[in-house]
């Protein structure tokens, strides 16, 4: 079953996805399913040192099930300070 999610992108992922927000259609509905589709559509993501996915402003586990109302964001390696 296909599910659509709106993904926020920050830092280098904003450049790779081509914008601050992107609608992604994925098969399945877990964080891992989303990651699989993202890597397939944007292979440059695989070149990052790390890539976390945040759900509702918290780092999410791969098995987490995504809901329509979730705020989903890509967190490439952070470099604040």
């Amino acid at each position: 079953m296909m599910n659509k999610f709106k993904i926020k992108a920050f830092g280098i992922t904003k450049d790779i996805l081509g914008g601050k927000e992107t609608i992604i259609e994925i098969k399945g509905k877990t964080v891992a399913d989303l990651r699989f589709t993202l890597n397939e559509r944007f292979p440059q993501l695989l070149g990052l040192r790390s890539l976390y996915i945040a759900v509702n402003s918290d780092y999410a586990e791969e098995g987490r099930i995504l809901e329509d109302s979730d705020e989903i964001a890509l967190i490439p390696p952070v470099s604040g300070g």
Binding site: R49, V78, S79
Partner: peptide, 27 residues
């Protein structure tokens, strides 16, 4: 400060005369 640098979702990009780079993004 060490933990903020490690965990807070904040990013910086360096802009040079001949290009730019998101810091720490790639290995």
């Amino acid at each position: 400060i060490d933990t903020v640098k490690e965990k807070a979702p904040i990013w910086k990009k360096e802009v040079f005369e001949d290009g730019e780079e998101w810091i720490s993004a790639r290995p």
